[in-house]
Amino acid sequence: MASMDGFILLILVMLPFTMPGETWFTLWGFVASWDGLWRALQIALKANAIVLALLTLVGSMEAITLGHALHRLKVPETLVQLLLFTVRYIDVLRDEYLRSRVAMKARGFRPSNSIHSYKLFGYLVGMMLIKAMERSERVLNAMKCRGFSGKWPHLDQMRFKPIDLLFGLTAFALIGLLLWVNLR
């Protein structure tokens, strides 16, 4: 949540100055408006509410279950595969990165604000990209060896159960209620 708030902070700070409306205060000749302040608060609350809802619904789930669920919900195959490969290989890449960092440390490297440091980090990133690319080629080879020809097969074991229907209906009812309260 903090990362998202950091992301939108700039927009929130700028809003009172860019929205026309009743004057709140002036800073170096720029006018901040009350309307802008309300709008900024609204955005901040909405964004945080969305992230909280997402965390409780999706965050408690294995990423892999999420991938399979998205596949069942007919999300494009490529996007689902991208998610699942990311889940599968992010740790492998992280380990590679950490191993390289330890190797650098073992030979006396201490990061500092110098050309030498930046150059070495450049090497590190470049090396990781090359390694990742080579790995992707080996993975494709391994897939080909097991009969892969472009279409990903699924061993699907998810079933739509009565409890899912109940959850769905309750959720829709609650959302409907909220809409009704808002629009009344």
Partner: peptide, 18 residues
């Protein structure tokens, strides 16, 4: 390189399904 599927059973199933 070879275990590219998320779970063990999916990885083993990949070949037969293909």
């Amino acid at each position: 390189d070879q275990l590219f599927c998320p779970t063990v059973q999916e990885d083993i199933a990949f070949g037969p399904l293909n």
